[in-house]
Design a protein around this nucleic acid. Structure first.
Ligand SMILES: [Mn+2]
Ligand SMILES: [Mn+2]
Ligand SMILES: [Zn+2]
Ligand SMILES: [Zn+2]
Lengths: 138, 138
DNA sequence: TTGAAGTATGCAACAGAAGTGCATTATTTT
DNA sequence: AAAATAATGCACTTCTGTTGCATACTTCAA
């Protein structure tokens, strides 16, 4: 059994052909991926299936959903041992306004946020927009 | 001349009837407001006009655009002396998953963000999701 | 004062993404 | 093999954001 087949089974997702392909695609990609990205890559397959595949991945903790402020939802595989928990797993996302790519900056965790009394934080989304290192070099 | 008429003129926006009404509406609201919110309030007026009014307000620095992760763009008036600058003016936004409202937490600025070498930050969007103080009390 | 230019508004239409319903197909279980 | 369960594919809808264009309103110079 392949590595990525295990990933699915460990997360209680049945490893269908399409799911394996999508997982592999996400694994190879270094940047966050939109439904349209996936759709364009697998032009034979149906948008709804891909949509539901990504949705399942998020629900089962295989990947996380990213709102980078472009209005287009992105997806990226979770790190090893990620539970998308507010104190340990949340990382910031960088969106490059030049190459239009969105990257998980997993090495830099989100700093501790202070809130006014009475507010309870359940989730934090931090997106930095600017120029990425690749575009910066050019 | 009214206060809000001055706000418009100070920002080089001609104070038309509709713009004054929208500005007043935003001033009275304590929470971030979507185009649809405005549209529902002024049900006589046209969606496009309101859309362009809000757009103009953002372009001229009267209000700022908020992406709270709901997929619906929100708007809120800028504070006095705000220039939406990355180091001074950016504040975090809180989205309550209970009452569904988004609030500017202007008293708590966004902490300093560290990025990997080569990345240039131009803008930062920080949204905390959870339970707001009002909903917490109930 | 009048006409031209510039600006704002209103209506219609479009684009793109997200999401739903339902029939069909595939897989698993009995 | 039949029944139950789950995944897929197609069509369609909803919603937000956006643009094009014709009309109305302002401004300003001749
Ligand atoms: Mn990420
Ligand atoms: Mn704000
Ligand atoms: Zn880039
Ligand atoms: Zn609330």
């Amino acid at each position: 059994m392949q590595d990525f087949e295990k990933i699915l089974e460990n997360n209680n997702v049945k490893p269908t052909a399409m799911r394996l392909l999508v997982l592999q695609f996400l694994l190879n990609k270094k940047v966050a991926t939109s439904l349209t990205d996936v759709e364009n890559y697998f032009d034979k397959s149906d948008r709804t299936t891909l949509y539901r595949t990504l949705k399942t991945f998020v629900e089962k903790g295989i990947s996380h959903k990213i709102d980078d402020g472009t209005g287009i939802t992105k997806y990226a595989l979770c790190e090893e041992n990620c539970h998308c928990e507010i104190d340990n797993d949340l990382h910031l996302h960088f969106h490059c306004t030049n190459c239009n790519e969105t990257i998980c900056i997993t090495d830099y965790k989100i700093p501790r946020i202070t809130l006014p009394t009475g507010y309870i934080a359940e989730n934090i989304n931090l997106v930095v927009k600017g120029i990425c290192d690749k575009c910066n070099k050019k």
